[in-house]
Structures are given as structure tokens and as C-alpha cells.
């Protein structure tokens, strides 16, 4: 068992290295529209466009041959030096750290909320199928996932940010209910103002995730809702609640853990580009996209490497969870 874990950890490192190498390769193979645009600018200014293209590439270290860039980067990485981000004009670690805080602020609450709501609806729904509340619950859960995020975000901003400020309902001004239209970065993390301006992004993200939580918890609960051991428990007089928690949940935990652990890890390093672009939150999603479109190789590599590593470790933890929770599975002989 221990051997198994050790092997998987070693694999995590190898896979990370592979992913970074692949990313590097793809990135370096991609053409460079920025350089072309810089050249065009210069040509229109009566300057030698080739010079400008060179200058552009040089200042980003992109004019060096590919393998040199790669080796430089890898050697730095071995020393845990993640390099410098040209597009953010700060060291990569600083850029990521800054961005991560912003992303975490809306991601963590969203996941928590969506898990709580999703699991509740899912489990309840499993034991009360085909009832009106079941349908309602499904509708609520699926609502968020069925509308395009960006549409929802823009509409929310318009309604809550703009219209509420001007409108009044039955003579009462709705101004007090209105929220900021975009994210202001100078509020402290744990202040009331910050909490208020996070409400909309969290709503958009949470509603989108509720459905998958609900579905899987419901599916798993359903698997066992009519199983013999449940019937036995009910026959013995156990309440629905006890049946749920003590019997169904335990068994359902194995596959549920699949989703749960992935969620937790996803929270550690994730950012939704759409939400960040619309609400103007300088988080990881934006950072990733900017890094790619500006061919900021150091940043792209770092931003790829971290989630890869976390994901693989996450998978390992998941697999270990199976073993713990389902005594029939054993990795001893694998």
C-alpha cells in the first residue's frame, strides 16, 4: 500500500513535468500575433518593422531558440524559481499569489454553497421521487446550469447594479438593494463591502455548480434507496433521516467522494474566466487567458503546472478514499 502511494506520488511529479513540457511545446509552436502586430505598428510609423518585431521578441525572451528557452526554464524550475512574467511585470509567484486571492474569494463560497444546496436537494429528491417538491428541486438545481453564465452575469449587473439604483417598487426605492457593478480591488478581503460585491459572482458560479452536485448525490442515493439493507432499516423503524445518514450516505460516499474531492481541489486553484472578465476580478482565470494570449511563457508554464500537480495528487487522494470507504477494494495487489 505504501509502495503504491509512493509510486503514485512519483508519478505526480513525472506527469507534471510531462504536462509542462507539452504546454511549452504547444506554446512555442504557436505563431506570435503580438510580434506581427508590433511589426505592423512600426511599418506604419516609418520604422523598420523587422527591428520592432525583434525588439518585441527579445524583450520577452522569445527570440531564443526553443530548446534554450525550455532548458532555461526547467533549470530555473528545479531551483523553484518560477521566473518573471512580462505580461504582469512582476515575478510569476507574485502574480499568481495576487490572482489566487481574488479567485478564492468567490470560488470557495460558491463551492460550499453549491455543495450544501446540491446535496440537500439531491438526497431529499432521491427519497421523494416524482413529487412536486422533487420537480421543483430539480428545476431549481438545473436552472443555474442551463443558462449561459455570461448572459446571467451581465443581466444581474444590469438589474441589480443599474436598475435597482434607479427604480422603486411600490414607492420604496430599491437603491439599498443594489450592488456594485464591478469588483473594486481596494477593499480588504474580510470587509463588508467586499462581501457585498462578491454576492453576484458567487451567485452566478454557485448556481452553475448546484446541478452537478445535486445530480450525483441523488443518483447515488437512489442506487441504494431501495436496496435491501435500506428496506430492512425502514422495517426496523428507522426514520428517513437516519436511513439517509447512517445507511445510504455511507455507501454512497464512495463515488460521491469522486466529486467532492475534485471539488475541493478545484477550489484550490481555479478561476472562471467568464466571471472574472465580466465582473472585472483580477483572478486566476483572467491570468491564465492573458498569459496564453500574450505568450508569457513563464506564467503559462506555472499556471499549467500547479493545477496539473494538484489534480494528480487529488486523483491519488480519491483513489485512497475508495480503499478507505469500500472495504471490498484493495490496492494491495495492484
Amino acid at each position: 500500500m505504501r509502495w503504491y502511494v509512493a509510486r503514485r506520488l512519483a508519478w505526480a511529479l513525472v506527469a507534471t513535468w510531462l504536462a509542462v513540457t507539452l504546454t511549452f511545446g504547444v506554446l512555442l509552436a504557436a505563431p506570435n500575433p503580438g510580434a506581427d502586430a508590433a511589426a505592423a505598428q512600426c511599418a506604419s510609423q516609418d520604422r523598420d518593422p523587422e527591428q520592432c518585431r525583434q525588439q518585441y521578441l527579445e524583450s520577452r525572451g522569445l527570440d531564443r531558440p526553443a530548446h534554450v528557452q525550455y532548458i532555461d526554464y526547467m533549470t530555473d524550475l528545479a531551483a523553484l524559481d518560477f521566473g518573471y512574467s512580462e505580461s504582469q511585470e512582476e515575478p510569476v509567484t507574485a502574480a499568481i499569489a495576487d490572482a489566487w486571492i481574488y479567485s478564492a474569494q468567490y470560488f470557495v463560497p460558491s463551492i460550499i454553497i453549491s455543495v450544501l444546496i446540491g446535496y440537500s436537494i439531491g438526497l431529499y429528491s432521491a427519497l421523494n421521487r416524482y413529487t412536486l417538491t422533487d420537480y421543483l428541486g430539480s428545476f431549481v438545481a438545473y436552472f443555474g446550469i442551463s443558462i449561459p453564465n455570461f448572459w446571467f452575469a451581465i443581466v444581474l449587473i444590469l438589474v441589480v447594479g443599474v436598475y435597482f439604483r434607479e427604480a422603486s417598487l411600490l414607492g420604496v426605492s430599491l437603491d439599498a438593494l443594489s450592488l456594485r457593478t464591478y469588483y473594486e480591488t481596494s477593499y480588504g478581503v474580510f470587509t463588508v463591502e467586499n462581501a457585498k460585491q462578491l454576492i453576484m459572482p458567487v451567485i452566478v458560479l454557485a448556481t452553475a455548480s448546484v446541478a452537478s452536485q445535486m445530480r450525483y448525490s441523488r443518483a447515488q442515493a437512489l442506487e441504494y434507496a431501495n436496496a435491501d439493507f435500506v428496506k430492512t432499516a425502514r422495517a426496523k423503524g428507522a426514520s428517513t433521516w437516519r436511513v439517509l445518514v447512517a445507511h445510504v450516505l455511507r455507501v454512497a460516499l464512495v463515488p460521491l467522494s469522486t466529486i467532492l474531492i475534485v471539488d475541493i481541489l478545484a477550489v484550490l486553484f481555479a478561476g472562471s474566466f467568464i466571471i472574472e472578465a465580466i465582473f472585472q476580478i483580477p483572478g486566476l482565470g483572467r491570468l491564465q487567458l492573458e498569459a496564453i494570449t500574450q505568450k508569457d511563457t513563464d506564467l503559462v508554464a506555472a499556471v499549467t503546472l500547479i493545477p496539473v500537480f494538484l489534480a494528480i495528487v487529488g486523483n491519488l487522494i480519491q483513489d485512497l478514499a475508495y480503499v478507505l470507504l469500500d472495504p471490498r477494494i484493495d490496492y494491495g495487489d495492484r
Binding site: 508519478w11 504536462a19 507539452l22 504546454t23 509552436a29 496564453i292 503559462v300 496539473v308 489534480a311 494528480i312
Partner: peptide, 29 residues
């Protein structure tokens, strides 16, 4: 199980974490 499982799942690991988005950008370009 065994060797097959290892290889397949390790490949899944890589693919799951591969930044498809970058590949998408490149191919689209």
C-alpha cells in the same frame, strides 16, 4: 486491473490536466 489499469489511468491523469485550452487556441489559430 494491474498494468493495464495503471497505464490507462495515468494517461487519464495527464489528459485530464492537460491544458486543452492552449491546444484549442493553437489549433484555432
Amino acid at each position: 486491473g494491474g498494468y493495464v489499469d495503471e497505464v490507462l489511468m495515468r494517461y487519464v491523469d495527464i489528459q485530464q490536466t492537460f491544458p486543452v485550452f492552449i491546444l484549442l487556441l493553437l489549433l484555432i489559430y
